[in-house]
């Protein structure tokens, strides 16, 4: 599998560390909603098809990437910096 790192270019998957499901939302830090925290920490769906996930380019720029990958074909449809995605998600919340 080759991941096209937005900073380093196309690189082999051995340079990356899988960092988990990127679809879950972390509850507000002060939240005491136990169910929401349980869902965030433990609950994972196992969809066939498109999935968004975090990958750390540990052997390259050390940026976390938000990768959209079809888990049944391994076809990667988009790779962006996780930081950028998180920033735009936050600004979306505010707006």
């Amino acid at each position: 599998m080759i991941i096209k790192c937005p900073y380093c270019g196309p690189r082999d998957v051995i340079e990356f560390i899988y960092q988990g499901d990127a679809t879950r939302t972390r509850p507000e830090p002060a939240s005491d909603d136990r169910a929401a925290w349980n869902a965030y920490v433990y609950d994972r769906t196992n969809p066939s098809g498109s999935h968004s996930e975090y990958w750390l380019h540990s052997g390259g720029c050390r940026q976390h990437l938000l990768v959209t990958r079809d888990v049944s074909t391994h076809a990667i449809s988009s790779v962006v910096f996780a930081r950028d995605a998180a920033v735009s998600a936050k600004s979306g919340e505010l707006a």
Partner: peptide, 14 residues
Amino acid sequence: MQHLEFFSDCIWPD
């Protein structure tokens, strides 16, 4: 290091 980077990049980019 990885743990800190994850929170810095993905959770608290602000």
